[in-house]
Write a protein that binds this DNA or RNA. Structure first.
Length: 161
DNA sequence: GCCAACGTTGGC
DNA sequence: GCCAACGTTGGC
């Protein structure tokens, strides 16, 4: 069964425009260095799942697009072995990698849905995104939450016309 | 740039 | 295994 997710990126380091500029508009979701987020990618994400692309540390922060998980499964994040990378992890090894990633592909832009508007929608009050202290950069989204946000993006379109 | 909240590390 | 110290995230 298809599952939904939300993945965060700081646009100053990797924005949705950066993803769209990649070959096949696809890239490795590298640099995740949190076990909970890694475990979601390793154990729960499946090919064909969809995710909201969220711009964190942005002005304003919010959801900007839909992407799809396209790798067959999670595989070791090469940046952990790269001494020149800021994601280099000296405690990891090729024999026993610590960090895994999936490939994501751009699907479509969405009318911008701000964090503020998600917070102000009572139907979305249980989203991880709006829970106090929640910083998880790869997080699950329920079907209900997904549909509600899609509905919000539609209402944006109408109100702008 | 500040800082609250959270995760990780490492001494003991 | 506790927990203080430190590092990071991310909204504001």
């Amino acid at each position: 069964m298809l599952n939904y997710w939300l993945i965060k990126s700081e646009p100053s380091s990797f924005s949705i425009e950066d993803l769209k500029a990649k070959p096949q508009q696809t890239d490795m979701w590298d640099g995740v260095r949190n076990y909970q987020a890694r475990n979601i990618m390793m154990q729960e994400m499946k090919t064909g799942d969809r995710a909201f692309f969220y711009h964190s540390n942005a002005n304003p922060p919010g959801i900007v697009a839909v992407v799809e998980i396209v790798s067959k499964e999670a595989y070791p994040d090469p940046s952990q072995f790269d001494k020149a990378s800021k994601y280099y992890d000296p405690q990891s090894s090729v024999e026993k990698p610590r960090w895994y990633l999936v490939d994501v592909k751009f699907i479509q832009d969405l009318p911008f849905t701000s964090l503020e508007s998600v917070k102000s929608n009572p139907k979305l009050k249980d989203m991880k995104l709006v829970q106090k202290g929640s910083r998880l950069s790869v997080q699950p989204v329920t079907h209900e939450e997904w549909n509600e946000i899609m509905k919000m993006t539609q209402s944006h379109v109408h109100s702008q016309q």
